[in-house]
């Protein structure tokens, strides 16, 4: 029971995000208008995704160093959680784009980077499933996950900055030079990121515990 405070915090932060995110005042920005609220539900998805992927990679490195399957469970489930956030991020972004840009998908570097990132991690899941030996699977997927992470970070942080983009946050479009975040937005945005990341951690740790229990049961069955 000692480890529940952060779960309470997650629920509180998310409740705050929902209420303040939908009801609080937001600055009037041209074109964006009320849709700037997507910041709390869409942009925070990507932040949580990157945070969870980083946790996954740290556990992958840990696995390579000491070969404990517990670390592999953490790496897998955090990556799974990150993929879930990525899919939600794409879906929310797509809805938002429909209302602001008029299309669900545009050829924009940020969108492409997000899609490529998801392709990478879907490939990671397929790679895992194609291996049967559990130690082999843990080791090889840890190697791929580190490799993919090393390729993914430049993809999302460097490439979009090389080209102009319609996406808020960069590009030369004056009406879209938004997210020069004022304090009003920040008040909700940072708690939202922390809240979503904690929720993701909660989901992932639950799945890790399930996984460990399942392994224990299996071992019991074999040893009977």
């Amino acid at each position: 029971m000692k480890a529940t405070w952060w779960k309470v915090l997650a629920v509180a932060l998310l409740a705050y995000t929902l209420i303040a995110g939908l009801l609080a005042d937001v600055p009037r920005l041209p074109i964006l208008n009320e849709t700037v609220r997507a910041l709390y539900f869409h942009v925070s998805m990507w932040f949580s995704m990157v945070i969870m992927l980083t946790v996954g990679v740290v556990y992958s490195i840990k696995y390579l160093r000491n070969g404990r399957l517990e670390d592999d469970d953490m790496a897998l489930e955090f990556t799974n959680g990150a993929i879930l956030f990525g899919v939600i991020g794409i879906a929310t972004g797509s809805l938002w784009a429909k209302f602001t840009w008029g299309a669900y998908w545009t050829n924009d570097p940020k969108l492409n980077a997000a899609a490529i990132g998801l392709l990478m991690y879907f490939a990671y899941l397929i790679l895992r499933n194609s291996l049967t030996d559990i130690f082999q699977r843990a080791k090889i997927s840890a190697v791929y996950s580190i490799f993919a992470y090393a390729a993914f970070i430049p993809l999302i942080f460097i490439l979009p900055r090389l080209t102009d983009s319609l996406h808020p946050g960069n590009g030369g479009n004056p009406g879209f030079n938004a997210y020069d975040m004022d304090s009003q937005l920040r008040m909700v945005f940072y708690p939202a990121v922390i809240g979503w990341a904690l929720l993701g951690t909660w989901v992932s740790t639950l799945r890790v515990r399930y996984r460990r229990l399942a392994r224990k049961m299996e071992e019991k069955m074999i040893n009977q």
């Binding site: 490529i116 397929i126 790679l127 194609s130 090889i140 791929y144 490799f147 490439l159």
Partner: peptide, 27 residues
């Protein structure tokens, strides 16, 4: 080369080689 060594451990199929390497090669 790196991806082919990974795919090599996983039974060497061509699909795996392609799906693992394409997203990394895109940038």
């Amino acid at each position: 080369t790196m991806v082919s060594s990974i795919a090599g451990k996983a039974g060497n199929n061509g699909t795996l080689m392609a799906i693992l390497s394409f997203p990394i090669l895109i940038p």
